[in-house]
Structures are given as C-alpha cells and as structure tokens.
Design a protein around this nucleic acid. Sequence first.
DNA 1: GCGCGAAATGTGAGCGTTAACAACACGAGC
DNA 2: GCTCGTGTTGTTAACGCTCACATTTCGCGC
Lengths: 337, 337
Amino acid sequence: MTPSKERLPVMADVARLAGVSHQTVSRVLNEHPNVRAETRTRVMDAIDQLGYRRNLVARALVTRHSRTLGVVSFDTTLYGPASTVYGIEQAARAAGYFISIVSLKSIDRAGVRDALGYLAEQAVDGIVVVAPQRSAARALADLPAGIPVVAVECGEAGEVSTVSVDQIEGARLVVEHLLGLGHETVWHVSGPSGWLEAEGRIHGWRAALSDAGRKVPELLSGDWSPRSGYEAGRRLAGMEDVTAVFVANDQMALGVLRAFAEEGVRVPGRISVAGFDDIPESEFFSPPLTTVRQDFAAVGRRSIEVLLRQIETREQRVREAFVVPPELVIRASTSPA
Amino acid sequence: MTPSKERLPVMADVARLAGVSHQTVSRVLNEHPNVRAETRTRVMDAIDQLGYRRNLVARALVTRHSRTLGVVSFDTTLYGPASTVYGIEQAARAAGYFISIVSLKSIDRAGVRDALGYLAEQAVDGIVVVAPQRSAARALADLPAGIPVVAVECGEAGEVSTVSVDQIEGARLVVEHLLGLGHETVWHVSGPSGWLEAEGRIHGWRAALSDAGRKVPELLSGDWSPRSGYEAGRRLAGMEDVTAVFVANDQMALGVLRAFAEEGVRVPGRISVAGFDDIPESEFFSPPLTTVRQDFAAVGRRSIEVLLRQIETREQRVREAFVVPPELVIRASTSPA
DNA sequence: GCGCGAAATGTGAGCGTTAACAACACGAGC
DNA sequence: GCTCGTGTTGTTAACGCTCACATTTCGCGC
C-alpha cells in the first residue's frame, strides 16, 4: 500500500490530503463530537488511503499517559503465574490498556527494583507485581515515585494494594474435607519456604487441624516440582499411620501419586491425597485429584480494577486488600478413612 | 525522596542542579565518551539527588526506536505458548528490549490484524507472532507497513521469517522408536485441525509409517485437552490390534493413560504410549511418558535473533526459516511389542 | 438584513528527549 | 603570537501529537 521506503505518514500528511488542519484529524481520531460528518469521512478516507496509523508514543508524550501497564512476574512457565498474567492481560486489554511484561528468573530485591525501574522509565501508567515470594514483597519497599502499584499474591506487602487468593481458606477447605471423611489427621507436603502461598497453605493446614483438636504431624516440604513431590511421596509411603495427605500444589501431588503407585500404596484406598491449583491435568491423574481451584481470571480482573481506580483517581498508595475465595473440587483421590 | 505531589524531574532539572546544559546530561546518560569525568560525577550526583529517571517515551519519539518488541500470542496458559513467550521475553530483555504482549483468546484473522495494528501504533520496533494456527498464518498477509515481523511456529507463513520446532522430525522420531521396538504399526491421536503443529505431527507420523512400508491406521483426533485424549483412549482401548499409540501432546497422552487405566489396559504391557512436548509433569505420569522435548528457550532466542537482525540491518521481509531440532525422551510408557 | 451563540475548524505552543551544529578552551607545533 | 586540531560544552531545532485558545462558519430569531 504505502511505499515502504519513505517514512510513515503522519497526521500532517493526512490533514493535507483531506484539506483540513492536523487538529481536525486529531479530533476525528479521538472521536471528538464537534466534527461535521462530511469532514469526518473525508479524513477517514485520507487515513485509509495513506494507511496512516497514529503514533501512540507522541501521544503519550503530551498526554502523559501511555495506556500501558507494567507487569512484573516470576517464571511465567508455571501454571499459576501464567494464568494470573493471562488474566491480567485480558482484563487490561478489555480496559484499553497495553501490557509490558518483565518476567524475572529469580526474585531478589535487586531484580524487582530494576524491573520497577525499567517500567518507570517506560512511563507505564501503573504496575502489577505478581511475586509470591517474601523477598519480592520486601522489594516493594523501594518503589519508583509517582506510579500506582498493585501487588498480586504478595501477602502483606507494605504500603501497596494487594489482590490474592485466600490460601489459608483453601488449605482449610481441604483439611476439613479430609477430617470430615473421618481421617484422624492430615499430613502436608508444603511448597518451598519463602513463598507466601506455601506459607499461607501451611498456616491454613495447621489452623484447621488445631481448631479440630487434632495433632499436627511433621511437615514435609518440596519445591513445587513433581520430583520433590515424588520424594515426599516415597517417605510418606514408608510411614505406618498416614491416611491423608494435603499436597501444596497439583504438580507435587502428581509426584506423590507416582511414588505411591510405585510403592503399591492404593489411593484413596489406603491414603487419600489432595492437591491445590486445579491444573487442567488434575482431573485425569490416576486417580483424578481432589484439589482447590483458584480463580486466576478473577485475580487478574480485580488487580486491573484496583490499579485503574488508583490511576484514575490519582490517589496513590491507597491500601486496598482484595481476597478472592478458592473453591474445593472433590474428585476420586479422597475417600472415607 | 522526591515530593510526590509535583511533576517528576526532567533532564532540565538535573541540568540546572548540576550547572550544565541538558545536552550534557543526555550525554552522561547515553555514555557518550567526550564528557569530563568531573562533569559526569556532578551530573550523576544531581540525578541521584533528584531521583531522576529518563523518559523513554520522549526518547523513543526522537530516536524513532522504542526498544520495545511486540509479541502476539494465543492462550499463554498452555505450556507450549507460555514457554515460548517466556523464552522470547528472556532473550529480548538480554538484548535490551522490552516486551509488549497481546494474547488472543481466539486466533482469527481479524484478531491478529487488530493486534498487529495496536502494536504498530505503539511503535514497537518489531513483532513476534506466536500463532500456530493456519488462520493466524494467513492473517500475516496484511502486515502493518514498516515493521519487521518474525513468525514462530507458523509453518509456511507467507513473506515473513519463521522459527519453529521441526514437528515432522519429532513425530518421525517417535514413530521410528516405536517401530524399532517391534510394533507392527503406530496409531495417532492428533491435535485439532487448523493447528500447524497438529498437522506437522500427523504428517511426520504418516511419512514415517509409509517409509517403513507399514499400513497407516485410522486417525483419531482431539483438541489438545486431557479430556479429548481420554475420549480417544476409550476408543483405542476397545480395539483389538492396537499396540502402540503416538499422542500429539502430553496432556492428551495423560487422558489416554487415564482411559487405559480405567479399562485395565496395561501400559506399556499391552499398548505403548508416547506423547509430545515433555511438560514437567510427563516424567511422573503413570507410567512415566516417552515424549518429544521441544527446546522453547532456543525458539525464543532464535526468534529474537532473527528479529533483531532484521531491525538492525533494516532489511525488512527477509525470509529466513530457522528450524529447531526436537529431542526424543524415552521413558517407561513404551516397550517392545 | 443583522446579530448572536453554538458548532466547526485552525493556530501556536509545548511535552522531554536526541541530533546536528556551533562555540569555546586548551595544548602542540610553527 | 598564531593557527590548528581535539576534546568538551552549549544552542537550536526537530520528533508527532494534544491542549488551549483564536477564528471562522452556520443556523436562527427578530
């Protein structure tokens, strides 16, 4: 269409072709009401003819809004972060915002600070930090000035608004389900220390057991990976009195199931197993896994909602704390004691 | 540090405080060699003192480079796309570029065109399209002018450079492995039609069987989901002469395994099963899954490499086609006939 | 026909940065 | 002393857009 050698057409080119001023072109593009219908179509025709696209960079410079939000995340290969980021992206785009992503390999204070710094230079209108680690939460201490921030899955993150799934409640649901089935107590394979989600689930597990007056067994812990679940499973298989295990995520639960299968431990016959996350695979594990579903789309929507409110009202650093409720999904891996 | 009420400091503020011109500040920031050491430190001090951050929007306007790359992707919740995007993001950041993501719910021509349009307005320096569907590949016909594009997993995508994993070769590896174990032929549960990866794998499967002079059994097909694999598995379990199945991805393979378990079909005793993708879970399926590993990080690196070369040489629309080799991972789900 | 308010359009400035060029200081070489 | 080149710094003009305001056009009542 346009000869690709020359520079791209700008508003002035459109204006010239349509026989109007650049300002009128701007008005057409921004759907300003006071433009004659005939003028509008003339401008639109010129735009089509030239293949003109407006330059949002120039616009951002003058309006001081880039309509871009920054997202800082950690390993978006994992199901949880990936789903959360996806939810955020969908919600942002629905609201007319772009997403600029920085995903960190490891979450240390310096990494988060740098990421926030980059995004600040990019002049994003706001930032969502998805960083479920304690170290990241701490890194939110030194925020770039003047940019609204919302933290997702960040627990008690200092001075910023937060949105998160109620981990404690999720864990409690699982434990109560298992106790309700008549199990004496429930063992737990937790996530790695330093992760707020891991800690929340441990906390909920402990609380639910204590509330029911049951003894709290020794804690096993993994690193979210199936392998670490497998290792925990080997240990649990060797123990006499284990009848129910709550595993902190579905991937580790898979490892536990694998270990039990190898050791000839029937699930749920001898040991009931429950997970957390409800990844798409869980329903087809052997046996299908009882687990806790987190509504990542809702988390994404809420974060954007909170962030946009902060941006639009220009009230920075309002501390809101949204909690999204989890949901227990009961399948075949849990049964009466 | 900075009073958050007033507007953020700009270069001129730094210049005034340091007693130099704004241009000198710019030179310091851009590491221009001809600046006296003492001047440099004075400027740096002023920058620290004011908490100044440069505004990349203004810079992009004048340099006409935003150092931002656009990524168009489809459902980044799936392991494949998520890993690819992650690889792209890492590679881009290592090269000093930002990533602006648009992830589409469904890939139709209009969706892709709009996404490309948005990114063009954003003035990204280049675009990576991760869109393994035929419809998306076709949508690449109407590209915005003047922006280098590279297509990932897009098969024969018209006029743009492509980077992809060799699906045909991957399928061939699996089939040859199974034939090598003495199986008479290999059944296939494919991905949904319209997906280039699905088609590549079907093609490789057919070719490998034909080359070996074996009969090509009826094709079963699914939609990548564990459930569709489960349904295919039910059908396969009822057939007499099936001894080996190549499933087009690991998630569906999980469904197949589940169906076989329910039907009492021993794996690999009666039927050998192989997948594709090597998701982190596969190693812990029951039994651990033989599958094909795709090096997504390499795909990401290569795409960025190709794209940056196009950007830097300003040669648009050079057709390079990079193919990343897949790797067979043999586990316990396949055994001699 | 005239005046007036509202609608439609145009004009100029400025957003914060870099590029291009001008200007200046300084020491070497004649 | 003067020229010249080199290194360092300053000045001015873009980049492509929107904002605030100025100006023109139009419809309508008297």
